[in-house]
């Protein structure tokens, strides 16, 4: 397993390079010039004074985006190799510092929402499968359907209205405290849980109908032992895959939740940077997101081996 892990980590390097290069090219292919956006009219209104072409060109020179693409690429790649992922066009600060400041809030939210999600998925998934056809099963499926149909921002606003306006237990804005993480984590956990929950239910039902379960029942094993010891681990495999993928989403894609709950994470920051065509931030974020994705997938693969000992990672034909 160690060898496998080392090999997977090694593969990360070309993956990072490919993602990095693609992001470099794609963001520059997208319409919009960072300097034009910087000096254009603002959403809040108000007239801004004219900026001459010379002033804009000067700014482009300062940012290094007046050079031909290959020159920009080489310069940028050289900096990355030296551990410098760039300076934000907008804030003029190191992208590393900016991401570093926002990452703890994002990690906190991701960890909390992932925990809630796992609890909801495992708890309700098992309940629905164990009580298949019962009122509990119907209720769980209905609950999943409602959550799937519910936009995350709407659920978030509903929770905010209830707990910030009506009960006044939390504040709408404020620092990233444990108290304030509850609502965004619940929202994010709930809206991303139903799909995995339904997969787990279906997988458990399939597993419960297999011969070894029939044999266990015939042997007189209690139902809870059959469920927890002999079927759940196997049934978890597809759910774990989805959970692994969603881990990446939770860490990088919670823009709407961060906006609604004023959570000072990476999502909103990157969204603003995309709109401002802040190339270094976007590239730095792609690097981070790629690393998280690769790492998340590695964790999923390692979890396979733990859940099903028949799977030997790194053995040809078995991964």
């Amino acid at each position: 397993m160690l060898q496998y892990t080392a090999r997977r980590l090694l593969i990360t390097v070309p993956v990072l390079w490919a993602a990095f290069t693609l992001s470099f090219l794609l963001i520059r292919a997208a319409p919009g010039d960072p300097v034009d956006i910087m000096f254009g009219p603002q959403e809040s209104g108000g007239g801004v004074e004219a900026v001459t072409k010379e002033q804009k060109d000067q700014r482009r020179r300062e940012l290094g985006i007046n050079q031909p693409l290959p020159v920009q690429y080489v310069a940028w790649f050289g900096r990355v190799l030296h551990g410098d992922i760039g300076t934000s066009f907008k804030s003029r600060r190191s992208v590393f510092v900016e991401l570093q400041q926002r990452l703890p809030a994002t990690l906190t939210l991701a960890a909390a929402s992932f925990t809630i999600k796992v609890v909801v998925v495992v708890g309700l998934g098992i309940l629905a499968a164990a009580k298949v056809g019962s009122i509990w099963d119907h209720l769980v499926r209905l609950f999943a359907l409602v959550l799937i149909a519910m936009p995350s921002f709407w659920l978030g606003l509903l929770l905010l209205w209830l707990f910030a306006v009506h009960f006044q237990w939390v504040t709408v804005a404020g620092p990233a405290t444990p108290q304030r993480v509850v609502l965004p984590a619940v929202t994010l956990g709930l809206v991303t849980a139903p799909t995995v929950m339904r997969v787990l239910r279906a997988s458990l039902l399939a597993e419960l109908g297999r011969a070894h379960v029939v044999f266990s029942r015939a042997k007189g094993l209690p139902e809870h032992l059959i469920l927890w010891r002999h079927t759940l681990r196997l049934a978890m495999l597809p759910a774990v895959t989805l959970l692994g993928i969603s881990l990446t989403y939770l860490m990088t894609g919670s823009v709407i939740i961060e906006s609604v709950f004023s959570w000072p994470g990476v999502g909103k920051y990157v969204m603003d940077s995309i709109q401002a065509r802040d190339y270094p931030v976007i590239q730095g974020f792609v690097l981070l997101a790629t690393a998280i994705t690769v790492f998340g997938n590695l964790l999923v693969d390692l979890a396979y081996g733990l859940l099903d000992p028949r799977i030997r990672l790194g053995t040809a034909g078995q991964t």
Binding site: F153, L157, L160, W161, A164, V165, Q168, T171, V172, A173, S259, V260, F261, S262, K268
Partner: peptide, 14 residues
Amino acid sequence: VIPDPDARTLAALS
């Protein structure tokens, strides 16, 4: 800072 306009309304109402 509250980026979402609806959340800002809630901040006012709360």
